[in-house]
């Protein structure tokens, strides 16, 4: 049995960092970098395009830049990235040029995805650098739900702000679960036991095959307070904030389907905290 609990724990941390980015009006996409040997988090990143007025300041860049500022001589093949959303075409090329060891992501990036959804920059053989391994689908619905909480707001920095009409995110369905993986690649990472999910595209990956999970059980306040750079850069974390974060998401059932019976909340931009439905 392939137990993916630690991957989910790592992704849950990235999701929470994404939530902290949302609190400072950034697109909630975030990542952590883990050293494969020490198994420690060595950097974090979150979208920073609005604050910086720079459209290239994606989570992946922020996380890597931090390491570079320390040392120009880093072996990226020993580093694994957990990012909530599939890297865009720009970031996919960036990570490939660095020689990143592995990328694990949550949901697909339907508009700009460079790891298989729009283009396959991570592995197209005509490009010069060595391809890298990329796996999607860990905590996918949570990554999507976090993004939806951002997109219901209006992007005030765009030249002509668009008025968003569809704010009904509680009742929105999720797109089919596509993995951008061959059957062999899927089995290699997720194991035979989860093959039904690759085939029917309607279910979600769970830490233990066919066993329910919720984010709440994956990370604690203490875990998050230990994440380097997080509180320093994005502010202190308390139980109340963590609970507000948990309340944004549906849980996943034993049969790998989404538990839509749970009442979730949505993020309120104006009040800077959550409002009940």
């Amino acid at each position: 049995m392939m137990d993916l609990t630690t991957s989910f724990e790592d992704m849950a941390i990235s999701l929470f960092i994404g939530y902290k980015a949302l609190l400072i009006s950034e697109t909630p996409v975030a990542c952590i970098l883990k050293d494969k040997k020490s198994n420690k988090i060595i950097s974090i990143g979150y979208n920073y395009t609005n604050s910086s007025l720079n459209g290239t300041q994606h989570a992946e860049f922020i996380a890597v830049k931090r390491l570079y500022e320390h040392s120009k001589d880093i072996d990226f093949s020993n580093i694994i990235m957990y990012v909530t959303v599939e890297p865009c075409i720009m970031c996919a090329s960036f990570l490939r040029q660095l020689g990143i060891g592995e990328v694990i992501y949550g949901c697909s990036n339907d508009r700009f995805g460079g790891n298989g959804t729009v283009l396959s920059v991570h592995k197209d053989t005509f490009l010069v650098d060595k391809p890298y391994k990329s796996i999607g689908g860990i905590a996918r619905t949570e990554a999507i739900q976090l993004l939806r909480n951002f997109y219901i707001q209006e992007n005030e920095s765009a030249p002509v702000p668009k008025i968003k009409k569809n704010k009904d995110i509680e009742n929105k369905l999720y797109p089919p679960n596509l993995f951008n993986l061959t059957k062999e690649e899927f089995v290699d990472f997720y194991g035979e036991q989860r093959l039904d999910i690759l085939e029917n595209k309607e279910q979600e990956i769970t830490p233990i095959p066919h066993k329910a999970y919720r984010l709440k059980d994956l990370i604690s306040l203490k875990n998050l307070q230990e994440v380097p750079f997080l509180e320093d850069e994005l502010g202190l974390i308390d139980e109340e904030q963590l609970n507000e974060f948990y309340d944004l998401f549906y849980d996943i059932n034993d049969d790998s389907t989404i538990d839509f019976t749970k009442a979730i909340r949505k993020f309120n931009n104006k009040k800077r905290h959550l409002t009940p439905e």
Partner: peptide, 13 residues
């Protein structure tokens, strides 16, 4: 420009 920089130009409009 490389793929990264080309896409950076798209993001930068």
């Amino acid at each position: 420009p490389c793929v990264m920089c080309s896409m950076a130009l798209v993001h930068s409009r």
